[in-house]
């Protein structure tokens, strides 16, 4: 039987890799994928909790997280397309219109 802590550690490591990617990459698509990595890390720990506490609520929450991730991907990629159409790049350092 694998202890619950192992799953939580795996989830923490994947989440932090996602944080690192989000902080250090400047390609907006890769930053988006880092967010997806973080969401998946949270899903791992929720399903692990759900299994070890013998409660279904964690998995219900995972279903909602996947729903929101799909919505977020659709909206975010639409924004990326609109940005690329206006700026011709997906490099976030070039996007500084909101600086004021």
């Amino acid at each position: 039987m694998v202890p619950l802590n192992w799953y939580l550690m795996l989830s923490a490591v994947v989440f932090m890799i996602g944080v690192f990617g989000f902080l250090t990459r400047r390609n907006i698509i890769i930053m988006f994928m880092s967010v997806e990595l973080m969401l998946n890390a949270v899903n791992i720990s929720l399903v692990a909790f759900s299994h070890y506490l013998q409660d279904m609520r964690g998995q219900i929450l995972v279903i909602f997280i996947i729903t929101v991730a799909a919505a977020e991907a659709a909206i975010g990629l639409a924004i990326i397309i609109a940005l690329f159409r206006n700026k011709g790049t997906v490099h976030v350092d070039e996007m500084n219109e909101m600086k004021g």
Partner: peptide, 27 residues
């Protein structure tokens, strides 16, 4: 968690990643 595994593949790998790939090919 079989159902979660199934929707992980269907929604994430089947829908979200394909969306990513489409957008990448548009850029």
């Amino acid at each position: 968690a079989e159902f979660i595994a199934a929707i992980q593949i269907i929604v994430y790998a089947g829908a979200i990643l394909v969306l990513f790939l489409f957008v990448l090919l548009l850029l």
